[in-house]
Nucleic acid binder design. Sequence first.
DNA 1: TGTACATCAGTGAACGCGCGTTCACTGATGTAC
DNA 2: TGTACATCAGTGAACGCGCGTTCACTGATGTAC
Lengths: 210, 210
Amino acid sequence: VTETARERNRRGEGTRLRADILAAAAELLEETGSEQDVTLRAVARRVGISAPSIYAHFPDREAIVDAVVDDAFAELKTAITTAADAETLPRQKLRAGCAAYLRFAREQPNRYRLVFELRNPLDADHPGRTIGAVRGETFQHLVDTVQLCIDGGISTSTDAFGDAVAIWAALHGYATLRSGHLGFPWPPYEQTFDRIVDGLAHLTPAASEA
Amino acid sequence: VTETARERNRRGEGTRLRADILAAAAELLEETGSEQDVTLRAVARRVGISAPSIYAHFPDREAIVDAVVDDAFAELKTAITTAADAETLPRQKLRAGCAAYLRFAREQPNRYRLVFELRNPLDADHPGRTIGAVRGETFQHLVDTVQLCIDGGISTSTDAFGDAVAIWAALHGYATLRSGHLGFPWPPYEQTFDRIVDGLAHLTPAASEA
DNA sequence: TGTACATCAGTGAACGCGCGTTCACTGATGTAC
DNA sequence: TGTACATCAGTGAACGCGCGTTCACTGATGTAC
């Protein structure tokens, strides 16, 4: 698979290559589904450069994958908060945020998986790789939204944090199983979504909303 | 890492090596966490044989991993059904089965992950690898147990299948996230378990049970 | 305006490695007579 | 009971491959004077 050679960057535009490398790595990851298949040489081939050129922008192969993960998580956070902020009612904020989460996982299943599964933030082999602040903030956003529902009287929950954990787990499991087991007779998408979000957030029926 | 050489099998006991290979592969998988690290040579090293010896028992490297997956799933199914069958009340059957599922995932997280994530039964590259009958039967066991709860009047659900899907997704998500994100401030184990099972199966409070 | 030159954005060849797989083989084990 | 031999359970060396990484390099681009 030979890619078209790319034009050499002009002076001072060396950072453009960095973005190209990241984009190629993300594509490669999404196509192969395996972090280990995102090889330095494969990335270079896709970008249209020689392999050593990558070392001007990343210290080693791992750093590329780390950067892809950081990018992906930032994108996920933006998708969630943007969707939630567009709504005003607590119930709709919660549902919109969760829907955005699932949409990201559905549209880029392998990139999603990498973020949550392959790159264990507490990987024993990589102690420096800690759970990013972005992750904490994103989860906190879910907790806050559940709390909004409680305060708004549309959730009978008494523990926003505990419910947020259950919702996150259920959404994550649904997203990964659904994209992985394509032959399973999945019920309509909305139905399972409703069961998970409404049920685990202890939402009262929608009709009761002011 | 040199392993102790093993004794040569006596005649007619060639199949014992097959079992040793499988056990070594399963261990290796559990330790490394990556299917791709279960190399033919690494397995051979661990068993204490030369690499080519494996070809007497498996046609290629992939076949070893496939066999590990089949073994693991059979084990998981047995764990679930055994736990559920030991109970008589529908509520306890459901809870015991789900608890056994989570226990398996907790004790052998990487083997569990391989079964549900890495080895997509509908992998486009391996069309012959279909979702085994064992998988269908195991999920059906969950559906049946939820139905038992409905029939026994301790669940207000009207759709055992749909609820089983949600429960499976939530358990799977909880299992994988919890074993992967060790730094997260997880609530007590039982609490999340209760939220997921009782909530998604629409169980009535335990006190109402006859 | 012309030109020497420093710098930048890369390249090409090479290294050692572990891998899956093949091939021809070996030596202990059991069996036929 | 003794022995020739077929079979079984493996082995050791070798292959070609793609990998991450290193090294010395090149040639276009911009700039100082």
